[in-house]
Amino acid sequence: MKPAPFGWIRAHSVAEAVAALREHPEAKVIAGGQSLVPLLNFRLSRPSHLVDINPLETSLNQVEWSGSALTLGALVRHQRLAEHPVVRERVPVLSRAASHIGHWAIRVRGTLGGSISHADPAAELPAAMVALNAVLVAQSADGTREIPASEFFQGYYTTALQADELLTAVRIPAPEGRWGFAEVARRLGDFALAGAFVQRGSRVAVTWFGVAGAPVRVELTEVPADAREREVAWRQALTTAVGSDLEVAKVAQAVAVAEKAWSEAQ
């Protein structure tokens, strides 16, 4: 299990990185590499070049609270996201979700931008972006564009990001209401069988991951106070969003995590 050959490009600026992506259409960006390198080792991914953006760490790892939004650089690593006092204070549900990613050694290397760009359907951070109504900032040789998270994730490992674009930052508006997060996995650190973010405020929304090719966000107009009725409501919300051909176990798990996230958002 050794990677096929590739060329190595160290990017010393975002401009250099996106120029390299434009020049080499078969190139891929490497950040933390925690999802990419296994694919390279399996030779399932065979880029002509890797564009290493780790040299940009100091410019792409900002954690900034503006008063109305949290801006996070693409190279913020999961462990830092989980532990950063500003994230903990302003968007605590995000730091909690980040602490559930993989294992310690994975979180130390893996990056926010990498996880979002990779778009694993069972990953926490893409769903967090959708749940939190984040705006994703992408840059290419042509300039910068902002993509709402709701339009970014298009299916299994598929995003709105173009091959020559680099995700540089995300902007998360101040979350409204109370939030809960829950996931179920076979073992600690495994990708979730199902996970959910629940927002309880002037509106109630649940965002699931691990149940479809991309995160699924559903707003509920009414959430029953009775737990049994609420369970029916989650089930309805899920089938409305993703159809009724989900496995029975998957549905049960999705309902269970929604309920758990709901009660944690008390």
């Binding site: 190595w8 490497i30 590499g33 925690q34 390198v37 296994p38 080792n41 050694a105 290397r109």
Partner: peptide, 22 residues
């Protein structure tokens, strides 16, 4: 595959998988 942890080394004091880095 980045799973077993046998190849863990410290990078700048933190544990990391040396099979997932070049």
């Amino acid at each position: 595959q980045g799973v077993c942890g046998a190849c863990t080394v410290l990078v700048d004091g933190e544990p990391a998988r040396s099979c997932l880095m070049f």
